[in-house]
Design a protein around this nucleic acid. Sequence first.
DNA 1: TATATTTGTTTAATCGATTAAGCAAAGATA
DNA 2: TATCTTTGCTTAATCGATTAAACAAATATA
Lengths: 345, 345
Amino acid sequence: MSNKKKTTLKDIANILEISTAAVSKALQDDSRISSKTKEAVKKVAKDLNYQPNHLASALRKGKSNLVGVIVPRTNSNFFSSVVQNMEEVLNKAGYNIIITQSNESYKKECDSIDTLLFTQVDGIIASMANETTDLDYYEKIKSRGIPLILFDRGENDLNVDYIGIDDYASSHMIVEHLVEQGCKRIAHIGGYQRTRIFNNRIRGYKDAIEKHGLPLDSELLLESSLTQEDGRIKMEQLLALKTRPDAVYIAGDYAALGALQVLKENAIDVPNEIALVGFGNEPFTAMVSPPITSIEQHSAEIGRLAAQTFLEHVSSPDIKQSLNKKILDAELIVRDSSNKKAFLN
Amino acid sequence: MSNKKKTTLKDIANILEISTAAVSKALQDDSRISSKTKEAVKKVAKDLNYQPNHLASALRKGKSNLVGVIVPRTNSNFFSSVVQNMEEVLNKAGYNIIITQSNESYKKECDSIDTLLFTQVDGIIASMANETTDLDYYEKIKSRGIPLILFDRGENDLNVDYIGIDDYASSHMIVEHLVEQGCKRIAHIGGYQRTRIFNNRIRGYKDAIEKHGLPLDSELLLESSLTQEDGRIKMEQLLALKTRPDAVYIAGDYAALGALQVLKENAIDVPNEIALVGFGNEPFTAMVSPPITSIEQHSAEIGRLAAQTFLEHVSSPDIKQSLNKKILDAELIVRDSSNKKAFLN
DNA sequence: TATATTTGTTTAATCGATTAAGCAAAGATA
DNA sequence: TATCTTTGCTTAATCGATTAAACAAATATA
């Protein structure tokens, strides 16, 4: 039953006995086409349910109106929210997006880049996988001359636009908050040092600790993949120390969750015995007990800004790929896992 | 610095002073091209970093090798896992996927369908938005003659391939489990009746309740959007009843979470006073306290099967869009929220 | 030797939309 | 009336890859 063959400009042209050029222009409301013809064309187009062939027009125009998005994973609220807001802005500007996930794998990320370039996207907005250290594939995007915008997980060396929060300052906020709570031995389970954002958090942690004259003990600073499981492992390590910390700041919410589970299993009073702070403000931080203090990264804003940055690039193609950083302020959401005062009242 | 203009077949042809046709065939290992020419072509292609223009080849071949995927949202573990496994299977078969999210909105879903058709995808794999009742847009996909496969949220009337779990039987498993726990007044916060899967869960609930000779009280059966917030609201309604239920089965984990929060706020003993069961086995069900009993839907398997079903369609185009249902068995994951026995020991 | 087959390649059409250039007819200007 | 503009459309080239058809040269077959 299905009308297999799609309607093309030619079909419309044949019916009206005019050229395909006229039809094309009529549909684009070209000023050189009479309104009579335009109406006729539009009517027939509607009747035949004409849908332009995107491949043909993209090929001809050298522009696909597609933007590729690479995220480490979609099942995190942060990335999902970034993407959603990005999409909203881009849709309004006539762009559609293609989402791909790297699953934190370097290989998968390279494949994603290939797929997107292959699909002839007009630009790529990406957040890098944890594993990624080799930037060749990103250089490939740059060398193709299409806009590349990074967010959250970026990389200075690439020298491209970047949107993210101030990780260094966020660490300061967290340490300051914990100090206010009376904590004196603050541990940090950080991400990979090689990743820019995690490195900034580590630097922020160290500087803030020193600033407050607290001990900067190397056994209190651990490097982690920040998965839930690794959060468990690293927390167990901290509990095994001769002198346990009285606060733990963890650079990711999932790892913080694993850590919290270990604390509960060990019947440790959170926050009074050990206070806990995560990072990312994933919804579950508010759901577990005790709810976990965390950092809100303004995902919606990051998504919108990334999209706008892309649009700026395409609207003025002369702008070179330049290091144009947009750094947002983060927000500390204090919850019971670090709020000793709430328990004193 | 960037080498703006991409290498085309023509560039290679010019260098080797052969026709583009020869180049094209050489790259495809056509048997009629001498191995000498093939080698030369491949060498030059590599040197010039040739990347075929997908738009051109898709236009010519009438096949984009792209599969569109529509999910209500990506930030649920279920959908994210489905998509990931789907992608794996499709990638191996030379297909790439384009993910779009409907955010449970009918309008957004229609836009997604338009985007995907516009991008000339070779097929669409979708799970319908909660809001969707009008099937016109899905009929549009069918009428275009491209394969459509639904999973999880499907619709009988569309008469297309469907992959999902046995919702009716799942409800039976849940009710049976609660009866075993000694529950006698089991409530159900279900999804929208109009949605096939939720309707099946409701039917399963009713039938199982009757089978065990329990009261099928209308005030114990509520219809919900199954958001976390609505879970709270509906649980409050149940608590306000003259005779409270001693078990609540909720057709979605997010709503179950909201309900659990209300129960905890009201200092109700879960599971002894009221037992709780969710649906979907989202990771947080294991994380909260008490952990929530839930149904595992085998997302990985669903993803793989959906992909395979698509591949079957394209490999034998004569197969009409037919009602080919693949129903998987679900699995009940019993956790503390409904496990009274664990507390007796 | 004459004919058939295989091999290796080129020519040219094609996918569908876009657009520069061309051109005829109508209208405006002098 | 003669010339210039504007209007409204057509022609034809183009984007880049693919492929049917054609063809020459080499090889096989009779």
